[in-house]
């Protein structure tokens, strides 16, 4: 599945008016000379003189080299390091998918079960949802990478006018080695992920997702609606992309069933059988292999086999990492759908 960043880049790729803009070198040199005639702020120098930058850089470089060779040994290198590859989440234990009639039947059976579920969403005016996820794009900066996987948990409340609240924080970290975990525990389990945040958004600030109560449940009409995305994805990829925005929301049984039927009718999905998701919940996995997003990838979506509700989705790079600092195969993103419903206030949970 494409990330929001991938989609935005895809929409605007090739339309950058400044693509070919380069510096006028003499002008650049003159400007530098003018800047350096001033002193840097005295305050800046005073504070830093006992810890010169060259020394910090040497320490970081040494630590990075040590990390690359012997693994993680100390916390300052755990959170962000200069290692050449990002530590990514462990792969799920998936069976080899089967395609064709077997996959289509499994999805249709699931759709039928979803449609038979009682409607327990409620009728509150606020849409609540809770997810936990890890996204490579949010982890990697231009020069630093992370050596521990720290998922982000996010709860969101959205009112009909698009105003709302988002409560976010770091989830439980995953360490690639027992030694790195022990070191973290020995140091008193200091926080590793992004700081907790509680952001409030005014009217329109959280608008944008489709109103699920207005989506048609007739598969053909629903497909037309989902395909209006402006992206140039085709086939099941565009469905997965559009449905990815819906799975976190509270969906009524008829719509849940219709979304599954669309995937079944695409004929492109693979069925990988029973699996447990990253939250330990039992489900059944479906896959889509595609390279419409620039690199060959496998999208995996896991549904609750009793209710047809989506439990999680994730993307695995399968053959070529491109410029991404990861091994092959690697998980590049995952989202767990942990709960949703309709409530009456910004502090309520279903």
């Amino acid at each position: 599945m494409k990330t929001d960043a991938d989609i935005v880049r895809g929409l605007l790729a090739g339309h950058d008016p400044a693509r070919a803009v380069r510096a006028d070198v003499p002008e650049r040199e003159r400007a530098l000379e003018a800047i350096l005639t001033e002193p840097p702020a005295v305050d800046s120098v005073t504070r830093k003189r006992w810890r010169p930058r060259w020394r910090t850089m040497a320490v970081v470089a040494t630590a990075a080299a040590a990390t690359a060779i012997v693994g993680l040994t100390a916390l300052p290198q755990l959170r962000t390091t200069h290692v050449s590859r990002v530590t990514t989440p462990p792969l799920l234990e998936l069976k080899q998918p089967v395609y064709g009639a077997a996959a289509t039947k499994a999805l249709r059976d699931l759709a039928a079960r979803a449609e038979r579920q009682p409607d327990t969403i409620g009728h509150g005016r606020v849409v609540y949802s809770k997810i936990q996820g890890w996204y490579l794009d949010s982890t990697v900066s231009r020069r630093r990478t992370s050596a521990v996987v720290v998922p982000r948990t996010e709860e969101q409340w959205v009112a009909p006018d698009g105003s709302g609240r988002q409560l976010a924080g770091a989830g439980r970290p995953w360490f690639p080695t027992a030694k790195s975990r022990q070191e973290w525990e020995r140091q008193g389990r200091p926080p590793l992920g992004a700081r907790d945040s509680d952001d409030r958004f005014g009217p329109g600030g959280l608008s944008g997702d489709p109103d699920v109560d207005k989506l048609p449940t007739d598969p053909a009409a629903l497909r037309r609606e989902l395909e209006k995305s402006g992206t140039d994805l085709k086939g099941a990829a565009v469905l997965l992309e559009a449905e990815g925005d819906l799975w976190r929301q509270p969906l009524r049984p008829a719509l849940q069933g219709a979304l599954l039927r669309l995937l079944a009718d695409s004929g492109e999905m693979g069925y990988a059988g029973p699996v447990r998701d990253r939250a330990g919940r039992a489900g059944v996995a479906f896959t889509l292999d595609q390279n419409q997003t620039g690199l060959p990838e496998r999208d995996v979506i896991i549904f609750d086999r009793r209710t047809g509700r989506a439990l999680s989705e994730e993307t695995i790079l399968t053959k070529d990492p491109g410029k991404l600092p990861v091994r092959i195969p690697s998980v590049t993103s995952y989202t767990l759908f942990l709960g949703s419903g309709r409530v009456d206030g910004m502090n309520e949970r279903p």
Partner: peptide, 12 residues
């Protein structure tokens, strides 16, 4: 915050 940037990007 990174969380706010993520949600702002999603909406945009």
């Amino acid at each position: 915050s990174a969380a706010a940037a993520t949600v702002r990007l999603h909406r945009a």
